[in-house]
Structure formats: C-alpha cells, structure tokens
Design a protein around this nucleic acid. Structure first.
Lengths: 138, 138
DNA sequence: AATGGCAGTTACCTCCAGGTAACCAGGTTA
DNA sequence: TAACCTGGTTACCTGGAGGTAACTGCCATT
C-alpha cells in the first residue's frame, strides 16, 4: 500500500529524532490548535476561547513549540491593542488533513467507542463476580 | 472542504467525551502500536521488541486501554507457551491510515523540522545578545 | 475610576504517567 | 540445574506536564 522509500529516520527506533516530533504531535492541545488553524490565521484569544478549557499558559507554551518546529507562523501587527495572528506554515499545512482527520475521528466514532467501553466493562465485571458452577476463564 | 454534517459531539467542547478519546489517540505509544498492527496481528513480545524503549508495563496498559475502546482485539491461543495476538478491530481499522500518516509524517519531514528548530533557536540567541547600535524588536 | 480587551507571563503546586526493576507461573532447551 | 521463552504483574518512585490564579502594560470604553 505504502511506497517503501528508504528514509534515514525510523520512528520505531529509540533515540531517533522523529520520536521527539511524534511526541509533539501526540498532544491533545497541539492537535486541536493545528486543526483550528486549518481555515486561516487565528488570534491568541480566539484560540483560547474556541479550544475550551485550555489555559493561556498551556496555549502559549504549545504555540511556541509548534512555532519552533516550523509548523506554525506567528505574525505581530502593530494595531492597538496589538494583534498577534497564528497561521499554518507551508510545512504545517502538509500535516493538517491528517491532524484534522484524527481530531475529528472521535466525533464520528464516539458511539462505537462508548459501546465498546460498556461491553468491555461489563465483561470485566462479570468475570470479577464468578457465577457459581460456571468456570470462567480470564 | 469537509462535509459539515451535524454531529452530536464537538471535540472543542470541554466535557465532551470525544476529548477522552482524543487524549487516548494523542499518545506516542498508542500511535506506534496502532501503526504496528496495520499489517496484521502481532504478539506482545514482538510489539515490545519492535517499539524500542517501550516497557512491558506501558505496553500492557496501553494495549488494555485500546482494547477497552474497541480499537484492537486480543486473542489468546492455548499453545505452549501461550500465544497472545493483538490485532486491529474493524473500528481500529478505520483509523490506521490516519494514524500511520501521522506517525510517519515525522520521518518524511524531519529535516525540515530540524532546520526550523535551528533557525528558531538562532533567532532567539541573536535576540538575547543585542547587537550594539542595533535596536532589536521581539 | 473601574472595567474590559489585547497577549501573554509568573509563581506555585499537585498529581499521576511513565520509568526501573524485580518477580510470577509454566514449559523447553542446553 | 540453570537459563530462556511465553505474557505479563507488582511495588516503588520521581520528574515534569499541566492546572490555578494572580499579574503585567497599554489603550478604549463606560
């Protein structure tokens, strides 16, 4: 399915720098921010309002990390009060379809996940209360 | 771009159950495990060997969470010694292209990220050591 | 004079994810 | 008899991510 090119990096390897990037991407807040920037530049406080429960501290930190990795760009406008816009860089843009798909997969499949959790928990509970005369494995 | 269906869930909302699922998916180890299962069932110790630096504890915990969410299936075979195979569930299968793309994006774009980091750090260092006679904004 | 919007920063603290390392049982091989 | 395979579990501990809440400075509005 995938074209097996020979890349110098392997995310399965310990000590591979890609692990650090994966760690950055494997972050709830980073995914939501990138998804939110998909449709154009957004200001700090707008992000803060849209991504509910994110704190200014975490938002600021996450934005800086994403900027450092070259995924987003920060633009300051000398308006009054000052305006700061965050937008996807060309590099970040190569990522957003994927990020977006991941971030919204849960919305599309939440019911299936909830059902699976309920089934799993029911099975565990059933196993924890052994029915007399019935030998339970697991 | 995206078909705007009306879904009962919104991952931007605090208190939405999708946030919990996003948190599960936004995990380095979970992403690597799902990616590894893409090509068929894999045994516990095989996963442990392939995903370097993962500890049996974290592997076991992550597998259980993914199983609870219905993303993977656990099959025990009464061989000797016992064989346990983990595989993608149909639900998990709907996710792997996305997960795989995310996990391997870093491999394809690592050089760009490293360059961006170097540029960012250089700019910060330059700003921290102000050139005399030159007024630096930031 | 007080409140609110802008874009953050700072100090403080807590909690638990995840690491370390040993250990379990049962069976096979050297 | 000792080591190694299978698939994990357990106890213990620490670092640092991330939460809380207050605060900055500047300006406009009420």
């Amino acid at each position: 399915m995938s074209t097996q090119e020979e890349l110098p990096y392997d995310v399965y390897q310990d000590r591979c720098p890609t692990r650090l990037v994966l760690d950055r991407l494997a972050d709830k807040w980073a995914l939501l921010i990138l998804d939110r920037l998909k449709d154009g530049p957004v200001r700090f406080n707008s992000l803060k309002r849209d991504i509910m429960r994110i704190t200014p501290k975490v938002l600021s930190e996450t934005l800086r990390k994403l900027e450092r990795d070259g995924l987003i760009a920060r633009a300051v406008f000398a308006t009054v009060p000052v305006t700061v816009e965050y937008s996807l860089s060309p590099l970040g843009d190569t990522l957003t379809d994927t990020v977006s798909a991941l971030a919204h997969w849960a919305e599309r499949n939440m019911d299936a996940v909830l059902a699976a959790q309920a089934a799993y928990d029911a099975a565990i509970t059933a196993a924890a209360i052994p029915t007399p005369g019935l030998h339970r494995l697991r």
